[in-house]
Structure formats: C-alpha cells, structure tokens
Simulated assay, not measured.
Amino acid sequence: MKKFLLSTLCVISPFVYSSTEAVYLHYDEVLDGVTDFQKQLKLNIDLSGNTVIGKTEAGALISGNVENTNSQYIGSGEKPRFQFEIHNGETRNWYFGNVNGKYWEGVWFGANGEKGDFSLYTDLLTKEVPQFENIIAYYADEVFQLGGNNTHNSLNSSFLIDSDNLEPHFINDEYFDTSNGLFLQADVRDGNLPLSFYIDYKKPMPMKTFRLGSFNNGEGTRLRTFSFDIWKDGDWQTVENFEFAPIYAPTYQRQEFSLPRTVYAERIRISATATDDYTDGSKLLMWGLSFKR
C-alpha cells in the first residue's frame, strides 16, 4: 500500500531490546523520618504506565503505582506520590512516599507492627520517552489524504503530548481541538484494513506504555483492534495486538495500553485492523498518541 510522506526521511538502522532495572532499597526499622541505611533489599523494578511492577532478588513480587502530577481529578501536586507492596508469602510490607527526581523516599509498615524509613535511587520517572522533538518523520497510508472524511493532521508540535487524563471529550467541547497532535480518520471500504501510520525517530527510543484515542458518534467506536509494530532487521515485527474498548457516544476518548516489555526502536507502525462503526461501509478514527514513562 502506498504511503504519504509528511517529512524528510533519513537512513536509519533500528534495533530493539528489553530491560528491567536493578536498584537497592535502603531501609531501617525506626520510624523517625531519617533513613539510617541499616539494611537493604535488591529489587528489579519497572513501570508499566503508572503501575510499579517487579520482584525482589529473592523472588517476592512487587506491585503498586505512582500518581500523575498536577491532576485535579486525583488531587495531586508537583511531586508524584507512590505506594507499593512487597509480597512476603502470606503477608505484605507496605511502602509509601514521594519522588524527587531520581530519589524515592518514604515510610514502610510490616504486617506485624514493623515500621521504618526507606529510600531508593532510580531513574524510572526520569527516563526518556518519545516526544515531538525526537521525530524526524511521520507518514500515513494514502487513504488518509483523499479528502472529505479521509484526512489527517500534518506533523505538528503537539504530536506525542500527553494532552489529558483519559477523560472523555464531547463533540461540543470548545476546549478540545482535533487539529492538534496526531489525528487520522478514513472511510473503510472494500476491505482496505489494516490502515496504518508510521513514526521515525532520530535515535532508538524506549517505549512500553502509550495512549491512543478514538471516537464514537453513536454508530459505534471507530477503532476495535490495532497492532503495534517495530522495524527490526529490515522488516516489520509485531510487538503486540490490542483491543480498544468501546467508548460512550458522542465522545472522543483515549485509552492506555502497555507493551509486554520495554522496546527500543527508531521506527514504529500502528495499524488499525478493525472498527465497530459500520455506517456507510464503516469508518475509522485514531488520535492523541502519546507515551508514558
């Protein structure tokens, strides 16, 4: 299928790998606001969106979350707070605190009255994720430039900006502007799915959790399934296939998705493979791509 080039392409050599980070959690057993570095645990942790996941060196599971900052919906401020649990057999230790750059600190509580202070040093919240300035090219399948209902936004400075907290935008929302960021729509006829868009970066970028939106005007959500592919060894490789949950009409809304592992790549492709809007041969719409640490 022909592609429409929206900015100059460069010769690139994509590659990909996955990783988790080993860090040391230093803690004491006196709750006084000061970590005395009496003991330590070695952890392998990662973030899937806002979800903390991992294991200790001994194999105990770690689970929790980090809040989005400056969100009126959850009452957060400039410094992200976090909480996670370490599962010790049938009991769990709870850890609470906030983040200052790469420094996480807080208090912990055991199941039988144990308590203390702790700290750890990690770049999980400061790792680079794809932004507009990392893009060297954005292009899409030719159907998106045929005019009428077949249209798209050109590359603009709002690309890959995390513009909302997944709240719905009604079609009469004066603050919602589909001319900013990624936006593509098309009439789907004659079995021309999948339909794809492509992004090339200046260098390999880490990607795991991302957000993508669609639209429902009352005839069905205009995206049902899609794939996330990376360019590797001279060919496209599918990292994961996703289902887009139905959204209420008449709204635009984004959803959050996570790849099964962190991947690094210089070129990606997202391909819509099915839609639930079958009006006049069916319709497709994707918007608002962004990535999360």
Rank of each mutant, 00 (worst) to 15 (best):
K2F: 04
L5W: 09
L6M: 08
I12W: 00
S13M: 04
F15E: 10
S19C: 02
E21M: 09
V23Y: 04
Y24E: 14
H26T: 00
G33N: 06
T35M: 02
Q38S: 05
N44V: 01
T56D: 11
L61R: 07
N65G: 01
Q72M: 05
Y73P: 01
R81T: 13
N93L: 06
W94Q: 12
F96D: 11
V99W: 02
K102F: 06
Y103V: 09
W108D: 02
F118N: 03
Y121P: 00
L124F: 15
L124V: 15
I136M: 10
I136L: 03
A140G: 03
V143L: 09
Q145S: 14
G147W: 03
G148L: 14
N149Q: 09
T151R: 10
N156D: 14
H169F: 08
D177L: 10
D177N: 15
S179V: 14
G181Q: 07
L182S: 13
S196T: 15
D200Q: 15
P204S: 00
T209D: 06
F210Y: 10
G213P: 08
S214Y: 05
F215I: 08
G220Y: 06
T221G: 12
S227M: 05
S227Q: 11
K232Y: 14
K232E: 09
E240R: 15
F242W: 01
F242R: 09
F242Q: 02
F244S: 00
T251R: 00
L259I: 09
L259M: 11
R267N: 02
I268N: 01
I270H: 00
A272D: 01
T273Q: 06
G281S: 04
S282T: 15
S282Y: 09
G288L: 10
L289Q: 05
S290G: 04
F291C: 12
